[in-house]
Structures are given as C-alpha cells and as structure tokens.
Design a protein around this nucleic acid. Sequence first.
DNA 1: CACTTTTTATTTGTCTGACATTTAAAAGTC
DNA 2: GACTTTTAAATGTCAGACAAATAAAAAGTG
Lengths: 242, 242
Amino acid sequence: MKIDPNSSADLSAQIAKAIKDAIINGDLIVDQRLPSESELADQFQVSRPTVREALKRLAAQSLIRTQRGASGGAFVNRISFEDAYAQQITTSTLLLSMNDVSFETACEARYALERACAPLSAQRRTPDHLATMRAEIFRQGQPGLTDEAFCASDVAFHRALVDGAENPVLSYQLAGAVEAMQPLMNMITFSARDRARIVELHSTIADAIESGNGGAAIDGLTDLEIETRTLATEVFAARASA
Amino acid sequence: MKIDPNSSADLSAQIAKAIKDAIINGDLIVDQRLPSESELADQFQVSRPTVREALKRLAAQSLIRTQRGASGGAFVNRISFEDAYAQQITTSTLLLSMNDVSFETACEARYALERACAPLSAQRRTPDHLATMRAEIFRQGQPGLTDEAFCASDVAFHRALVDGAENPVLSYQLAGAVEAMQPLMNMITFSARDRARIVELHSTIADAIESGNGGAAIDGLTDLEIETRTLATEVFAARASA
DNA sequence: CACTTTTTATTTGTCTGACATTTAAAAGTC
DNA sequence: GACTTTTAAATGTCAGACAAATAAAAAGTG
C-alpha cells in the first residue's frame, strides 16, 4: 500500500483508495483489524487527522467499522445485504431526482426488472410473502388512505413480490429500482377509481403468484405498467395545462 | 439541521446525516455551496476537524465535491450515472465475495435481469451496440486468449446487450449484477470446447438482437445460463474431488 | 481606457499536540 | 475464586497554526 505525496489528489482520498483496494484484493479480510490510526499515520507518513479522514470515507461506504477502547480499532466490515440495500436506495433515489430521469424511463426499468423476478417468485414464494402481498392489497382498499400511504403500501407489495424469488441478489438489485420510484409515484394523486383498478391488478398478480403461474404474473405486471404509465401521463398532462 | 451532542453516535456521523438528509429533502440543491468548514463548525458547535470528517463521509458517497481557494468550498454534487455505476459495482462485488453468495444464486439473478433487458435491446439497440457485441464475439474466438481476458470480453458483450435497451436506469441497475459476476467467472477455466459453445450462443443472441427478435434473445440467454451453470457445476465438482 | 501583473483575502488541505471517553485486560482485594 | 479497581490502549474531539490553491480586487503599464 503506497501513496504519492505529489499527486494532485487529497492524501486522505489516496489512503482510502489504497485500503479499499487492499480489501477488494483480499489482502485485508473480513473482521481483520487495521493498524491503529497512529500506526497508519506512520506507515503513510501523514498525520493522524488525515488518516482519520480516510477512515471516515471508508466507514461511509460500510467498508470498515470502528470500535473504541482497548483492543478497539478499525475492522474490515462484512457488507450486509441490509447495508447494501440502504446505500442502493439512496443512490438510486438521488440519481433519479438529480438527473431528470423521466417517469417513463424509471417505470420501464422497474417493471422490466420485476417481470424478471415474477417467474421465480411464482415458484418459490413462501406463505409469508403471499400473506404480505394480500395484506397490502387489503390496506390499499381502505378508504381514507392518503396518497403517500397508498404508495408506501404499493412499494411494500412489490417488495414482497420480489423477495418471493428468494434470491438475495435479486432483492438487492431490485430494492433501488422499486424504492426510488416512490418519490415519483408520490407526485401522482390516485382517485378512488384508479385505486380500485390497481387493487384489482395487484390481486390478479397475487393470484398468479399463488397458483405458481409465472406467465400470468408477468402479464399482470405488464398490465400494471401500462396502467401506471397511462395514469402518470394523464396527471402530468393535466398539471401542464393548469 | 440539528445534532445531539449527547447521542452515542459520532458527531461527524450525525453531521453527515444532517447534511445528507438536507440534500435528499431538497433543502440543498445541486451545485449549491455549503457554508465553509469554519461556519459549519460554528453552526454545529464542533471543531473544524469534526466537520471535515463529516464532509469526507459525504464526499465518499459522491454527495458533495470540494474545491480549494477563494470562492471554493463544498458543493452539492449531481450524482452522475458513472459515479453510481462505480459505487454499484464495488458494493455488489464485495457483497458477493463477503457473503458466500453461491455461483448459482448470482448467476440466476444476473440472467434473470438480463432477460428483462433483452426485448428492449432488440427493439432499440443502435448499430454501435451491435458492433460492440460482434467485436467481442470475435475476440472471444481468438486462440491464446487468457481466461481472464475471455471473461472481461464476456462482460463487455453483456454490457453492450444491456446498454442496447437505451435505458440508463436499467444499465445502472444491471452494471452491478453483470460486473460483480466477473470474479466468480474468473474461477472457471474455459476449455476450447467451452469457448466455442459460448461464442455460438453469443452469436445466436446477437442475431436475435439484430433481427429485433426479443423472444429469441431471451431463449438464447436462457441457454447461456444453463450452459454457464452446468460448466460451473462441473468445474467445482472436479475441484472438490481433487 | 484596455490589458496585464501583482496583491490580497478566502477556503480547503495538512500538521502538531493535547485532552476526553470508552473499553478490555491486568492488578489488586476480600 | 469472585469481585472491584487500576491501567493502558484506542478512538473521538478540540484548538491553533501553517501551506497551498484560487478567484477577485488592486495596482501597474502600455
């Protein structure tokens, strides 16, 4: 692990990169303790605050965790799926909101990915997943539900559908696509008629998942995508003319 | 933006979270300048090094960028798809390598997601995407290619396929799934016969994409998935018995 | 006046040294 | 032996300072 003091880049960024590479290469393995901050400062020939800035960069990416006290220090962290979910969701959300990604583009991606999960979910979903889907459908039918709560329930329904595939890698990848849509969906007002239609489609999908019919689930998702995009187009058109 | 000095969490983590929330909420918008480090230190009633640690945390997530000099400072960064790609890839790679995700699971997720892109790619791919796919197929047929180079080319081929869907959100989500597989693929040795078979399947897929036949592309990907999993099973079985 | 050069002020980057706090292990005590 | 106290090591935080970069203002120059 070497750094170049003459480089234009920040020393703390270089040190962070050096340690990060060591983790990726497997030179540092999970739960291994890094040298203390003072030792790292000596090794890299920099001051302790600089080392600390580097370590904070790594901590922000969940690459290390720190512990105080004797026998404390910085340890290589095993990135959990939950950590990864959270990062994935915030990155996706900001990516969409900051880059003027159209509703159409985000929606297309989301439903394309969900259809990829549908057949697996139809095969493998547990009673639990199905129960969650049914419960959320029920919630969506309740009168007086705010639009935000309706959207949150929609996300929960789709998360259960995705998780039903019982493939953590798929769940992780989909988390961003599904959750990042929520702010976009929140811009829509759902009339009672819209909600009834969505609940109906959700039921169709849940039925397909329950009976193990992946093809039907895909068709249901396609119908839901069309419905959602039509609805969004109408809402945005109405808002533009107003 | 408030922090709690009595909380168990690090002050720098709290400050980072406060600023991050402000960005997510839209209180801080893209390219907006944050107060200087000294001003932030005053506002949060902490020292400048603590503020700096917080800012480095945010910089590590590409949420801000910093500039030195007069009229410099920290600015809210527009997260680019490229930034997001890079983060997504390292997170996915580490997630897989640190959590003993089986080849099967990763492979299943990857091909499920790719199949989601295939119909769109068949519709929209530019001549450029197709040319990249053909070029990589050609490269894969060259004798003397190392296994690593073969895998890298494989990734490039699939990236072109995914990018052909012309949906940046899809490309971003898929980047992790495709690239994170590379280290796993690198564990496999590809015989000449294996390579010929893969090149053949790649050609079938490229043909389907060229002719706009999404269904055929999906079938080709399914065949490729089966081929890859069979190959991996054989290799791992042989290695286990040796 | 227009242009170039110099100065200056601001801001981040880095260093030194210190103290506070947490924590586990060692030492002491009953 | 079980419990308490001490101690040492590590991170967390602070204060103050200087270096380096940079843009704007000021000064100089034709």
